[in-house]
């Protein structure tokens, strides 16, 4: 892939026009650049994420999708020698604004990882972790939150009789739904999902996609996925990342059926990736 050609071809892809019918933008980046040490991984990323929509990020391996996702809740700061420039606004305010702590930000923007990572604690304590960390310790309150979150993650019926058991006794798909429940328990506005089903079997994948469909009524979801069909199934908008650049960003239907860029067309029709 010739870097010069990608950049030269006027790569500030047109953002979809704002119509009145579209929900408002809740999260946006402008000219986001990221370096791992001296290596630049993201170039001038500008994207708008809208409320109660599912925005998918697709692209070949190593093109910066997960990295970009983690800049949204500043989790990328855990990596040493990372440098980020550009603007990221959440609900109109910069995420680097000193008046809002990074912990508060991460409470409003939750994240689910590729490999399910429940804590080595009981199912109950996993879901209660978030609320506890935020100071809620009263048992009746926690019981409520745990049940509500597990129901919202479509896991309650399967675990309600074994809440005190270790989370590792659950299957992979169940563990992932537990991680989703855990995130829901802190009542975020946005949920970031980093390839949430790539480590799961097809049935669990289906259940989680159904869950996403349900969740998007209340939450805004940004999902990174390797699986183009998944993006086509669940998302409203799709961004195609290539070599750390946004190649195209459009309504999902438009991007898949009528891509504006040649490279997008090649990728979605499977000619590379």
């Amino acid at each position: 892939m010739n870097r010069a050609r990608v950049l030269e071809a006027d790569r500030q892809p047109a953002l979809p026009p704002q119509t009145d019918a579209e929900p408002e933008v809740i999260l946006s980046t402008r000219n986001l650049n990221l370096w791992y040490g001296d290596q630049q991984a993201l170039h001038d990323i500008s994207l708008d994420i809208r409320r109660t929509q599912v925005t998918a990020i697709i692209g070949p391996s190593g093109c910066g999708k997960s990295t970009y996702l983690k800049t949204l809740n500043r989790l990328v700061e855990l990596v040493p020698r990372v440098r980020v420039t550009g603007e990221t606004l959440f609900q109109g305010r910069s995420i680097y604004d000193k008046t809002v702590s990074v912990e508060e930000l991460r409470t409003k923007i939750g994240i689910v990882f590729q490999k399910p990572n429940p804590f080595p604690k009981s199912i109950y304590e996993n879901v209660a972790y978030g609320p506890r960390v935020h100071g809620i310790n009263k048992k009746s309150l926690l019981d409520d939150i745990v049940e509500k979150s597990l129901r919202a993650a479509a896991l309650w019926e399967e675990v309600k009789d074994r809440l005190r058991q270790d989370a590792f006794g659950l299957s992979g798909g169940q563990q992932q739904r537990l991680c989703i429940a855990r995130t829901l328990a802190i009542e975020p506005e946005v949920i970031l999902m980093d390839e949430p089903t790539s480590a799961l079997d097809p049935i669990s994948t289906m259940k989680i996609e159904e869950l996403i469909y349900d969740l998007k009524k209340t939450y805004t979801i940004v999902i990174v996925t390797h699986n183009m069909q998944q993006a086509a199934r669940v998302s409203d908008k799709t961004a195609f990342f290539l070599n750390g650049v946004v190649e195209e960003f459009d309504d999902t239907v438009a991007l898949f059926s009528n891509p504006k860029s040649r490279r997008t067309e090649d990728y979605v029709s499977g000619r590379f990736g």
Binding site: L75, T107, I111, N117, V133, I186
Partner: peptide
């Protein structure tokens, strides 16, 4: 990844 999960939920 356990630490990441914790930070991801807004823990200090």
């Amino acid at each position: 990844y356990l630490r990441e999960a914790s930070y991801g939920m807004g823990a200090t």
